[in-house]
Amino acid sequence: METSAVEEQVLQLVTFSLKGEEYAVDILSVQEINRITEITKVPKSPHYVEGVINLRGRVMPAINLRKKFGFEEKAIDETSRVIIIDKEGITSGLIVDSVSEVLRIPSNIVEPPPITSEMNCKYIKGIAKLENKLIILIDIDNLMEKTLHL
């Protein structure tokens, strides 16, 4: 998972968009990507927990990434997707504006995040510089708490 890994290493990423910018998560932590079905609100939960969803009989929390990052809210629409993240057997969903593609990039084009005092920085693992765009790599381990305290 180190970003400053050996040169030859290739990263496989799932990229998605959020407020017009491209983000990515490591494909190994992604179980699947789904359209958003009905979400059940959980009382007294943090504002960024949209509620719980049903994934083929499993009930899991769905986190609205826009809310988690403090961006302006956007109603869930046709392009909205939920990325199911599997972290040590515990699954949860990330709600994003849309999912773009699966990308293979050499790990040496990833640079560490700019050091700012911004809180969201701890959720960012690095920035990949591609020819025509920048992709922000999400640090899933920091983003997903082991247990979500409601």
Partner: peptide, 22 residues
């Protein structure tokens, strides 16, 4: 509810209805 600590929200679990709703 795996991965969620719901003690504070008075929820002990969930069930799924015939329509697939939680």
């Amino acid at each position: 509810l795996d991965g969620m600590d719901t003690a504070a929200s008075y929820v002990m679990g969930a069930t799924i209805t015939g329509e697939g709703k939680v």
